[in-house]
Computed example of a mutant assay.
Amino acid sequence: MKNLTLLVFLFFIISGCTSLVSEKTVKKENLNNFLRVGISTNSPPIAYRQGGKITGLEVSFAEGLARFTGKKLKLVQLPWKDQISSLLRGKIDIIMSGMTITELRRYQIRFSTPYMVSGQIALIRRTDRNRFDGSISDLLNPQVRLGTVAGTTGDLFIQDIKAKGARKIYPVSTDGVKALLEKKIDALIYDLPQNLYLASKYADKGLIPTHILLTKESLAWAIRPDNGNLLENANNYLKSLTRTGNLVPLIQQWVPYYQP
């Protein structure tokens, strides 16, 4: 029986996946014993579902922060649009879901120290690497057909630069990848973590990322303005990862090709 228990424990460690803690479990115990993390699971490698469990970079961070604060982790899966309102209503303690720091969001919430520099980059075919250096000027060529994911920063970016070529909008990134492989578009403009992940996943099919940031953004965790203690703990946790040299390797486990 002991051996079976050990095998089950090792399976969860190796899998790198975390399941949701039930509401019943939380209600039975003191709420203060839990770190309730708001997370949206539609953005690999930041956070996504695999084999019925939630996994990704933010899950690794959440597990580490829970250990650092001596609390039990409760992942609260939420639609992206409900993250900030759930935080302000006290349904969660922190948003760990690849959130970009913006001035508009600063009016409502407080952000931890950024853990990662991000932005928009292009995913292209390896055979086209001589056509693109990743700069904005490449994208303004009327012959370049651009793809993006609906409702993302990449979509807004293409509109802002007034790209002259055809623009295709896809509901999910995998549709954009398919179009790129079928040569229906020439570049997929998307967030750096996601495009680096896709480049790794489809490397054998000839896709590569460009390495020039078209925009510069910072990813951080969001906390209620009245929860200064958690904000301090989150920043101290990040400091400990930086001090021990573990921050960048942890990111690189989930985001291939990433360089700070």
Rank of each mutant, 00 (worst) to 15 (best):
G151D: 07
G151H: 07
T152C: 09
T152L: 08
T152H: 08
T152S: 15
T153H: 10
T153D: 12
G154P: 11
L156M: 11
F157D: 00
F157N: 02
F157G: 00
Q159G: 07
D160V: 01
D160S: 10
I161P: 00
K162D: 04
K162N: 06
K162V: 00
K162Y: 02
A163K: 01
A163G: 06
A163M: 01
K164F: 01
K164P: 02
G165N: 01
A166W: 05
A166L: 12
R167C: 06
R167E: 09
K168G: 07
K168T: 09
K168E: 09
K168P: 01
I169S: 04
I169H: 03
I169A: 04
Y170T: 08
P171E: 12
V172N: 12
V172K: 14
V172A: 12
S173M: 12
S173L: 10
T174P: 07
T174I: 15
T174D: 15
T174Y: 14
D175P: 05
D175V: 11
D175I: 10
D175H: 14
G176F: 09
V177C: 06
V177S: 06
K178H: 13
K178G: 08
A179S: 14
L180A: 08
L181D: 08
E182T: 11
E182A: 13
E182L: 12
E182Q: 15
K183G: 00
K183D: 11
K183F: 03
I185G: 05
I185F: 08
I185T: 07
D186K: 04
D186S: 10
A187Q: 07
L188W: 06
Y190P: 10
Y190M: 13
Y190A: 11
Y190R: 11
D191Q: 15
L192G: 06
L192F: 10
L192V: 12
L192C: 08
P193G: 14
Q194H: 14
Q194S: 15
N195Y: 04
N195P: 04
N195G: 07
L196F: 09
Y197R: 02
Y197L: 03
Y197A: 01
L198G: 04
L198D: 02
A199P: 00
S200E: 05
K201V: 14
K201T: 15
Y202Q: 08
Y202T: 08
A203I: 05
D204F: 12
D204Q: 15
D204A: 13
K205R: 13
K205M: 11
K205Y: 11
L207N: 01
L207V: 04
I208H: 00
I208N: 02
I208V: 13
T210F: 01
T210P: 06
T210H: 00
H211C: 03
H211L: 10
I212H: 11
L213E: 04
L213R: 03
L214A: 05
L214W: 04
L214C: 06
T215R: 05
K216E: 15
E217G: 03
S218L: 15
S218F: 13
L219I: 09
L219E: 10
L219M: 12
L219K: 09
L219C: 08
L219R: 09
A220D: 02
A220L: 10
A220N: 05
A220S: 13
A220T: 07
W221Q: 09
W221M: 13
A222V: 08
A222S: 13
I223S: 01
I223Q: 00
R224D: 06
R224Q: 11
R224F: 04
P225Q: 00
